[in-house]
């Protein structure tokens, strides 16, 4: 059960936390599964939350980084108006790009909120015992590798939260050749997601997939919807769909929590 904020507000209620879904989380079929998994977790943990639904707009991140400040400012203005009108205090999002923009770039424009990425929220919930994992650990002995999102890691210094979340799976966490501060980009940021690559000898997501293959991991965990889309493509290019499972940390937790 996912409530839309406008309906909630009409009933005179307000949520503890707003779930900012983001464009990929709303529209991309693969990423919708992550969105649903995370909403599931919020429901199972009795978290009071709501989404904006059609009142949410893109944060403007890809336009700003591509160089179009006008489009960014228009969208930022629109979102900040909406959020301020609903008197939103706390926001959780599954997208590191939305996270970075709302947390770091909206305050100077008049939008200040407590913003938390779902990796951190999941980590807190596991620590607090709100999320309990099933006994039979079907991950025992399985190798998982975590892919650092640039906008969660380098841009906002969140490296450990997603890893701690994965620890809860009782799996064998292995690292790729480049990880944490040295994590290799998936290739989507800065508007690249929406255009063809510039000429080169390889796509970035393919280079990254090769690093994952080298670890022998059977699961690659991500915490960013755009990384997920790039990974899906990279793994397909390498013909490794059968060997490598791609999952967001929210999906992994949701599948195995009580």
């Amino acid at each position: 059960m996912v409530k839309v904020l406008s309906e909630m507000a009409a009933a005179g209620e307000s949520p503890e936390i707003l779930f900012w879904v983001g464009c990929a989380g709303s529209f991309d079929q693969r990423v919708q599964r992550i969105t649903k998994a995370f909403a599931d977790i919020l429901n199972k943990t009795n978290t009071s939350f709501a989404i904006l639904g059609s009142e949410e707009a893109c944060t403007g991140d890809p336009a700003r980084r591509a160089g179009n400040e006008f489009v960014f400012q228009m969208l930022a203005y629109q979102n900040i108006q909406t959020l301020n009108n609903y008197n939103i205090k706390k926001i959780v999002t599954t997208c590191p790009h939305c996270f970075n923009t709302i947390k770091n770039e909206y305050p100077v424009l008049g939008g200040s909120y407590e913003v938390i990425h779902h990796a951190t929220l999941l980590q807190e919930m596991i620590k607090a015992g709100k999320i309990k994992m099933k006994e039979a650990g079907d991950f025992k002995g399985k190798k998982i590798t975590y892919h650092d999102s640039c906008y969660l890691g380098r841009a906002n210094g969140i490296y450990e939260a997603p890893r701690e979340v994965l620890q809860a799976l009782d799996a064998d966490l292995v690292e790729m050749k480049s990880c944490r501060t040295k994590g290799l980009c998936c290739g989507a940021g800065g508007g690249q997601m929406f255009k063809e690559d510039e000429p080169g000898d390889k796509r970035i997501n393919v280079a990254r997939t090769e690093e994952a293959i080298a670890t022998g991991a059977s699961v690659v965990a991500a915490a960013c919807p755009f990384c997920m889309i790039m990974w899906e493509d990279g793994v397909k290019q390498k013909g490794k769909e059968a060997e490598i499972e791609l999952k967001d940390i929210a999906e992994l937790i949701n599948e195995r929590m009580v």
Binding site: V4, V21, G25, S26, F27, K36, L52, E56, A63, M193
Partner: peptide, 13 residues
């Protein structure tokens, strides 16, 4: 949204 979807459908998932 960066894709050509109607914003009305944003909450459809």
């Amino acid at each position: 949204a960066p894709w050509k979807f109607s914003n009305e459908d944003r909450g459809n998932w």
